[in-house]
């Protein structure tokens, strides 16, 4: 019975998304929506295919992927390190608490022009922007994970006279893993948003820049094809990570 509901939900979701795409397609084809405003989705897909095949956007894609990769690795490392450090220093943590609570209320993109003025118009300010956006999420997830290690497990480790390294490997990391994984997933989403938004506002290459450039050149075909590319890539990554996380949680529950 439960499986049936799962199936019904998946079907309904596909129906909603497919219906929305078909509706837009029909409205565009029938001329209700002006082709200068929005292109039919089938057209976007065809344009995207053409762009990918021509290799025109390979350079921008590589630039964006490299920037996101660098920002992601650095924010995970920095966020994890800071999380462990601050977790070990309760006094510092208490002082930082209000700061962390309001960190994400500050619209960080406003710093981007400043970063460009400081570092120049290259990938570096984009990496810094992505890190400023993603590292705190990783840091807070790390601290949350370390907070939630069951006391009893640490006592078991002491009873077994595990060394410090062994305790970390056998007890701390496995208990904190789900939180660390959530932190990494957030960090990925945030670096994506940070880097692409930065490219969009001010940059010399990258997918975000290509979209802004196409908009300014009234090149709707390229613009919508690139938007579709971003939507598809982000959705596929998010869905696979989500599916992996769910499977991990199920295995944990069974074990």
């Amino acid at each position: 019975m439960k499986l049936k509901r799962e199936h019904a939900l998946t079907l309904a979701r596909l129906g909603v998304i497919g219906g929305a795409v078909l509706l837009v397609e029909a409205l565009c084809r029938s001329g209700v929506i002006n082709p200068l405003t929005l292109l039919p989705p089938s057209r976007m897909a065809a344009d995207l295919f053409g762009l990918l095949a021509s290799g025109q956007i390979a350079h921008d894609m590589a630039f964006t992927a490299g920037t996101i990769g660098a920002a992601l690795v650095l924010s995970i490392a920095l966020g994890f390190g800071l999380g462990v450090l601050v977790h070990a220093l309760p006094r510092v943590r208490r002082a930082l608490d209000p700061l962390l609570a309001s960190y994400y209320s500050v619209p960080f993109f406003i710093f981007y022009p400043l970063l460009v003025a400081i570092f120049g118009l290259n990938a570096f300010p984009l990496v810094v922007l992505g890190m400023a956006f993603a590292a705190p999420a990783m840091m807070m997830s790390t601290m949350a994970g370390l907070d939630r290690i069951p006391r009893v497990l640490l006592r078991v480790a002491r009873a077994h006279r595990l060394s410090r390294v062994e305790t970390v490997r056998q007890i701390v990391l496995p208990s904190a893993a789900p939180y660390l994984f959530t932190g990494m997933r957030l960090a990925l989403a945030y670096t994506f948003i940070g880097v692409i938004a930065g490219e969009f506002i001010m940059a010399s290459s990258g997918i975000g820049h290509a979209i802004a450039y196409a908009y300014e050149g009234f090149d709707n075909n390229t613009m919508y094809a690139l938007m579709l590319l971003v939507l598809v890539v982000v959705t596929v990554i998010n869905m696979s990570l989500h599916a992996y996380e769910t499977r991990l949680a199920k295995r944990r529950a069974r074990a």
């Binding site: 019904a8 309904a12 979701r13 998304i17 938004a197 969009f200 971003v230």
Partner: peptide
């Protein structure tokens, strides 16, 4: 049911870089 159908779709929309959609908003 409607909520369960909508939740992952909304969460997916939440995670996309919406900045890239701004030109579309401008055109509309």
């Amino acid at each position: 049911f409607a909520g369960d159908v909508a939740e992952p779709i909304l969460a997916g929309l939440y995670a996309i870089p919406k900045v890239t959609l701004y030109p579309m908003i401008l055109l509309i």
